[in-house]
Design a protein around this nucleic acid. Structure first.
Lengths: 203, 203
DNA sequence: CTTCCCATCTTTACATTGTCAGGATTACAG
DNA sequence: CTGTAATCCTGACAATGTAAAGATGGGAAG
């Protein structure tokens, strides 16, 4: 049973792992379903039973990608000094994820292959969005503030993932973080006019 | 000579036009070279002589895409009241292009298929970047300001092109522009402290 | 005007890919 | 032990990208 069991046991998870590796190597545009099956050591038609077609597999992978995305942001937000710092850290997490897994980032944000009508995927995406809204609400911000933080974080992340923003690539990590911090701070709702020892959620 | 001349006359341009149509319909990920050849009414191997392979065609298309991108921004910048308004209009042009030609936008900013080492493409991209730097310089801004305006403009455009930012889709056009204007204004270098009748380029 | 060269385009061929249909194997309930 | 359904495989087909070799005609050299 250890060499080649006809029934894999947990092929679905194995295929997802293989798909993630394939994606990381070939990118979304070079992704091959048959190659994924080979990685998992299984026939080329095996994925069909679990995911239907290629879109189904990429949809499932996108769901997993969203949770990993959110995990990265959550990890960064830990240790924030206040709500303001927390929002900035979320933006830095956004970039960290895009640089660590650029292909997965592209899959969930810039690809037409996953089925965004799938309830699991819309749920995963909504969770991430709601989290962002929570960050802004804690600062007393409105819809415009949500757009500002999201767009700026996404822009830095997407351009960096595609190696388009060479200005940032040249800098050291510390210097880079400092620049991004100052950029993100502009996007947050105006700070309390006075030195605020007052609780942030006053309104 | 009007029915089927063996020599097309200007096949290269015809293929580029067909490729743009194909891209608009199928997207980058559904792009087919053979389908492009059919559109141009030519054999499936005809593009090879002019562009080498698919990457070559998409590279040439990306070059054309960058010039159209810049044209859209330039058109929007016309009629700006001052340098500050001009930078904001550039951002709105960024979005306008992404919404008008989402697939072309993805091709030049979020695809791995064009060859970004090709000198024509790097030149076209550099022109767009240099233009952005000029906008910020006119406002007395620095590198951080360039990143801020670019990232925010790109984020709004990319998320809108992918229909990810539903908040903006719901709004009317006027309301949408107003929100984006206020977001972009945050990214620009701090305004002159006093009511400025003074020429902007004083420094 | 004729001849020859070569850019242009076609035809043919092959490997790869996604998807479907049908068959083989195994787990599991009765 | 037996039958059923889930799981996985084999085989086939159309579409695709790419390379090789042939067909066509424009244009220069004589």
């Amino acid at each position: 049973m250890s060499q080649k069991p006809y029934h894999h046991g947990d092929l679905r998870a194995a295929l997802l792992a293989a798909a993630e590796a394939e994606l990381a190597e070939k990118g979304v545009e070079g992704f091959s379903l048959r190659s994924v099956a080979k990685r998992a050591g299984v026939s080329h038609a095996a994925p069909a039973h679990h995911f239907g077609d290629t879109g189904g597999l990429l949809t499932a992978l996108a769901v997993e990608g969203f949770t990993r995305f959110q995990d990265t942001l959550d990890a960064r937000e830990q240790g924030a000094t206040d709500d303001r710092d927390r929002a900035v850290r979320a933006g830095l997490g956004y970039l960290e994820f895009a640089l660590a897994r650029p292909a997965l980032f592209r899959l969930i944000f810039s690809s037409a292959r996953p089925d965004y009508a799938a309830p699991e995927l819309t749920a995963a995406a909504s969770r991430a969005y709601d989290h962002l809204v929570g960050l802004i609400r804690a600062l007393g911000g409105d819809e415009t503030d949500v757009i500002a933080l999201w767009a700026t974080s996404h822009g830095i992340a997407d351009l960096s993932a595609g190696h388009k923003m060479r200005t940032l690539q040249g800098k050291s990590l510390a210097e880079r973080e400092a620049m991004i911090r100052s950029v993100l701070l502009r996007c947050l709702p105006a700070a309390a006019p006075e030195f605020s020892r007052i609780p942030d959620r006053s309104l």
